[in-house]
Design a protein around this nucleic acid. Structure first.
Length: 103
DNA sequence: CCATTGACGAAGA
DNA sequence: TTCTTCGCCAATG
C-alpha cells in the first residue's frame, strides 16, 4: 500500500540537515502540491519522536509553535539557535541563508 | 455525508 | 509594512 500523507511529509522532514530549515510551503511543493502547506503543519503535530520537526518554519522565517498551548515558549527557536541559526530582533531568521535547498 | 479545523501562504487593500 | 481575505486539503467528530 502507498505511504500515507503523514509518512510522505515525515520523510522529507527527516532529510533536513542540521543547521538548515525548510518552510511548510516548500515541503508542500516538494511533494508536488499534493497537500496544502497548512496540512504539513498538521502533520508536524503528530510527528514521531526523533523527527527534526523544529527545522520546519513558516515563510517569514519565524517559528509557529508559540501559539500552541502546552508547548514551552520558544522551544523551537532555542533548538534552532543551538544548531547555529541566528534570529533577529523580530524572532525571524534569514531564509536566504538557512533555507534547505532540498538536496 | 457534512462542517469544522489548522504549527500555512499568496495576493490585495 | 501590517491586516484581511481567500484558497488550500486531509483529518476529525
Amino acid at each position: 500500500m502507498p505511504p500515507t500523507p503523514f509518512e510522505q511529509i515525515h520523510r522529507i522532514v527527516a532529510r533536513i540537515p542540521r543547521g538548515r530549515v525548510a518552510t511548510y510551503g516548500q515541503i508542500s511543493r516538494m511533494l508536488d502540491g499534493r497537500f496544502s502547506a497548512q496540512f504539513v503543519g498538521w502533520a508536524m503535530h503528530g510527528a514521531p519522536e526523533g523527527l527534526p520537526w523544529h527545522r520546519v518554519i513558516n515563510s517569514k522565517g519565524g517559528v509557529s509553535t508559540r501559539r500552541i498551548l502546552g508547548y514551552a515558549p520558544d522551544l523551537q527557536k532555542n533548538l534552532l539557535e543551538a544548531e547555529g541559526i541566528v534570529f533577529d530582533d523580530e524572532d525571524r531568521c534569514d531564509l536566504a541563508v538557512y533555507q534547505w535547498d532540498g538536496r
